[in-house]
């Protein structure tokens, strides 16, 4: 049986959150795998917020902001995009894997796109398997229980 991933979605209140809200109101179906954290702008999202999510056991993190050129703060989503690219590199160095992090640009009226993004990310993480830290922690607990 495929595991149910825990995906942390760090999203902007103006565009993606509105899309996610609309997806809910329209009863669009998508996997119940995301935990949403609402930001005023994706430009506020720090590398450390993403790393802390993985450290706490998230299987993936998706960052989603306004479409390019539509940021309410002009370039917050572009800054987030660059930070996400850099953080992918850090995750590769750590051994978690940069492919567990992805940036999306979803406009306020694009509810179907939000549902599709969650589906895509869920499928990707199901193929990758759980966060290696979670696997490690579980195996240590099992060893302790046996001994």
């Amino acid at each position: 049986m495929a595991f149910t991933p825990k995906i942390e979605a760090l999203i902007c209140t103006y565009c993606t959150y509105t899309a996610a809200d609309m997806a809910g109101a329209a009863r669009m179906q998508y996997p119940a795998t995301v935990r949403i954290v609402k930001y005023l702008c994706t430009g506020r999202i720090d590398i450390l917020h993403i790393l802390k999510a993985f450290e706490a056991g998230a299987d993936a993190v998706m960052v989603s902001g306004c479409e390019v050129g539509d940021c309410h703060f002009l370039e917050g989503n572009l800054r987030a995009q660059e930070r996400v690219e850099y953080t992918k590199h850090l995750l590769d160095e750590i051994g978690i894997g940069g492919e567990r992090l992805e940036m999306f640009h979803i406009g306020a009226s694009d509810a179907p796109q939000w549902a599709e993004a969650v589906r895509q990310m869920t499928e990707r993480v199901q193929a990758l398997g759980p966060n290696p830290l979670t696997v490690k922690r579980r195996s240590e607990v099992q060893v302790e229980e046996k001994s």
Binding site: I47, L48, L51, K52, F54, E55, L90, E93, I96, K136
Partner: peptide, 17 residues
């Protein structure tokens, strides 16, 4: 902030090892 990032990186990488 960079102290926090390095600490998180080291904690995760060394835990995996």
């Amino acid at each position: 902030k960079e102290v926090g990032i390095l600490a998180a990186e080291l904690r995760m990488a060394l835990e995996l090892e």
